[in-house]
């Protein structure tokens, strides 16, 4: 853990969670501590059942940890943008209405929210699909809408929970480029949960590796690949070396 963290937006301190299961409890996370810097892209990598999604849900405020705590730089609860494994678009809202949702919840009027949403539509490359129903979208397009929705209210923290896990391999790789470009344009602080070593390395500045349940930070690896990230980087020796380290840590 870099003790010299100049500007942490999030400090997690010994987060521990046990779910009641009638058998002494399911110990999902154990003493997870880490910092996240402003505008940093952090990937949380771990085998399935390592509690990485649970960690994200704690930070999102959806569940409370059993022990430990986490603090945000602002001192209060931050604005969260979240993308789930499934796009979770509301089928009764059109593409643009789905993107507008966070602004509507903040009380912005529809006309103004629509203008903002139009910007996001362009950012994620969905011009022409504004008034389509979610059922008409492919998996990749739906996930773009979900990303746009997670960004529209200018969140302090973007949480991605295996955002491309349900996409096919080709679409997933295309979405890495897209997300990389979007991140470059918006420079949000991101925490992304994934089980793909390649995805973690390609997108993030740092990778935290969690152990098998109960999850604990086993490795905190800085990804010193230049930005903007390019597809070719995945085939370099350095990328391979970093991937090797992560693989060893996962075990």
């Amino acid at each position: 853990m870099p003790a010299s963290s100049p500007n942490p937006i999030l400090v997690a301190d010994k987060l521990t969670i046990t779910f009641p299961d009638g058998n002494g409890g399911l110990h999902a996370l154990n003493d997870v501590s880490f910092h996240v810097q402003v505008r940093e892209f952090v990937a949380v990598l771990g085998p399935s059942g390592s509690g990485k999604s649970t960690l994200l849900r704690i930070i999102a405020g959806l569940i409370a940890p059993t022990h430990g705590n986490y603090t945000f730089a602002s001192g209060q609860s931050p604005r969260i943008g979240m993308v789930f494994q499934q796009a979770n678009l509301m089928p009764w809202r059109t593409v643009i209405q789905n993107i507008m949702l966070p602004l509507e919840l903040q009380g912005m009027n529809a006309a103004e929210a629509r203008t903002h949403a139009q910007d996001l539509i362009e950012l994620v490359g969905l011009q022409g699909f504004e008034d389509n129903w979610p059922r008409d979208l492919s998996g990749g397009m739906a996930q773009r809408v979900a990303i746009a929705r997670a960004l529209i209210h200018d969140p302090d923290l973007l949480l991605l929970d295996e955002p491309f896990g349900s996409l096919d391999a080709l679409t997933r790789e295309r979405m890495w480029m897209e997300l990389s470009r979007i991140w470059q344009a918006r420079r949000k602080t991101v925490i992304m949960v994934t089980h793909s070593i390649e995805e973690a390395l390609f997108l993030s500045d740092r990778v935290l590796v969690l152990t098998q349940r109960p999850g604990n930070v086993k490795l905190d690896l800085k990804v010193d690949l230049p930005r903007p990230r390019k597809d070719e980087m995945r085939y370099t020796a350095h990328f391979g070396k970093l991937a090797g380290k992560l693989k060893d840590a996962i075990g």
């Binding site: 999102a60 959806l62 609860s77 979240m82 979770n88 949702l101 919840l105 949480l159």
Partner: peptide, 14 residues
């Protein structure tokens, strides 16, 4: 109503 939608709404502090 799928639980994931509640997660979404709660993450947006609805």
């Amino acid at each position: 109503v799928p639980p994931a939608y509640y997660d979404l709404m709660r993450s947006l502090r609805a």
